[in-house]
Design a protein around this nucleic acid. Structure first.
Lengths: 138, 138
DNA sequence: ATATGTTCTGTTATATCATAACATTTTAAT
DNA sequence: ATTAAAATGTTATGATATAACAGAACATAT
């Protein structure tokens, strides 16, 4: 949370109540949450906000590097290593729904080199591997 | 198209009119298409089918390795190298919207190794790099 | 302390993407 | 011809996401 406040300030933005709450919800969840799941959990505190509220908070959190979007699931997850910059990949279990954030340098490196050799200027990287996690293989 | 027929037969499935037409539409497009874009183009031939029709055709084409889904865009693209199996990655231009399918062995290898060392059993790989393509950099 | 510009929130409405469920038809193989 | 599997047609609905605009909270400069 301290990190979150610092990162917000570094962007000249505010770490407001809704944003904090959404981040808490993400961090408390063991698996990625859809935007409407987050809405459901916000509801427990106050009256159910409009979807925009959540999407705006998520935009902010992603922008600040505090959360990630899992494109292949239309879901969101709190960043597990928010300090500093990093380029994350995800291992998403089809059985238990968990998503492990990894920072695999070899993948990042291969992506950079592939893009470079194609003359492609990279903005964002989406690397999502789905399958079965170790816990679910027995 | 010959490849498409062969792959269909290999799966014990049929390469029907709708499926063929959807694949033609994908192959004719220079950039990924949303499911409803495909519907619009089908409409030109006959009366606009229900969305299910397109989603079913897409499911089939993806299953057969004739098309790919771009998760980060909710869009679909014809496979540019449908012969044989392959593990594709995509370079998606934010400026012109084009999506280049590449087969980068180093990325594939790094992904396999990362998953293996995490004890993760891989089903699917989503690697989508967004940015600016060479043509759009001038 | 107040004026000002920016950030953030609240709210309504709507756009966009995707699937459930079930009846019917086509096809291939006997 | 019979049959089982594959494929289609159709209606309805679910799930995800954004547009647009009014107003409130906040920072900071005078």
């Amino acid at each position: 949370m301290k990190t979150a406040e610092n990162k917000s300030r570094a962007l000249g933005l505010r770490f407001t109540k809704t944003r904090r709450k959404v981040l808490e919800i993400l961090w408390q969840s063991h698996s990625p949450l859809g935007a409407y799941d987050i809405l459901d959990r916000l509801q427990e505190d106050s009256r159910r906000p409009a979807p925009m509220v959540v999407y705006r908070a998520l935009d902010f959190l992603i922008e600040a590097g505090l959360a990630h979007r899992l494109s292949s699931r239309n879901a969101f997850i709190g960043c597990s290593a928010p300090e500093g910059d990093h380029e994350a990949q995800f291992l998403i279990c089809n059985h238990c729904g968990s998503a492990a954030e990894v920072e695999a340098r070899p993948i990042a490196k291969a992506v950079e080199e592939t893009a470079a050799s194609a003359g492609f200027h990279v903005h964002q990287r989406v690397v999502e591997i789905t399958g079965v996690c170790p816990n679910c293989q027995s």
